[in-house]
Simulated assay, not measured.
Amino acid sequence: MERSRFLQVALDAAAAAAEVIRHYYRDDIEVSLKPDQTPVTRADVESEQVIRKAITDAFPDHGFYGEETGHQGLDAEYLWLVDPIDGTRSFVRGYPFFSTQVALMHHGRIVVGVSSAPAFGQLAWAERGQGAFLDGHDCRVSQVERLEEAAVSSGNLRTLASGPRWSDWAEVVRRVARIRGYGDFYHYHLLASGRIEAVVESDVNILDIAALSLIVEEAGGIFTDLEGRPVGLETTSVLAANRHLYPELASLLRVPRA
């Protein structure tokens, strides 16, 4: 696959961030709390700074929306969405379920996505219309057609647990072959590469899942929020699955048709 300049800059930016992250990983790094009580470290800030520099040097007229360094040009034709360490709690505690998420949105539609997990040792990327790749190999979602044979992973189910869909989720749990809670980037990598069939989350941020949504879609899956809407800046929930199982899961979880 020939990479566009957009994709190459995203990959280069993620690689530069990985060098910063590896320097601090499993070090005795100071942790602060942001106003929303989520943790942040020097590694978060410095890795976003190198990503932001790489992107703004290459595309000075593009907008930028970062988890740590703020945003500018949210209404720009091209908008970069960046979470330098998605899974800071994992990073701080020294286990490798964290990643760098870099996505490019064009007129509200995600066109490039990179998901880099340097400590875990995985790199996934996609460009709209060009397929999805994991560690250099093209990947596809599974062809499992029966819910009773499916593996489903969940994460961030707090709002689901306190809402009317909790009993619907219980029916999903009862029906599927296997429930796991891989969380963060990892269950989307598994979904895109055909190792599980679906992911459900009810409390996410667009920066967490923008790149991953494109990777899953380009791998042949369907990715919406729990209201059946495509991914956008306001997305806070996820239903992602292969094309065979998405309709049945959507019905069980009372997801409106888009």
Rank of each mutant, 00 (worst) to 15 (best):
V9A: 12
A10Q: 03
A17R: 05
R22W: 04
H23I: 08
I29S: 00
V31I: 10
L33K: 13
D44H: 00
I55L: 10
A58F: 12
F59P: 07
H71L: 10
L74I: 13
L79S: 08
P84I: 08
V92W: 05
S99A: 14
H106C: 13
R109V: 14
R109E: 15
S115D: 13
A117Q: 11
A119M: 15
F120H: 15
Q122W: 14
Q130F: 11
L134T: 12
D135T: 15
H137A: 15
Q143L: 06
R146L: 12
S154I: 15
S154R: 02
R158N: 10
T159V: 11
L160K: 04
L160H: 07
P164G: 10
A170E: 14
R174N: 08
L191F: 08
I196N: 03
D203I: 05
D203M: 14
I206F: 14
I206G: 06
L207N: 03
A211C: 10
L212W: 08
L212A: 14
L214H: 02
V216K: 06
I222K: 10
D225E: 07
L226Y: 04
L226P: 01
E227C: 09
G228F: 05
P230F: 04
P230Y: 07
P230I: 05
V231L: 13
E234S: 13
T235S: 09
N242L: 01
Y246D: 11
A258E: 11
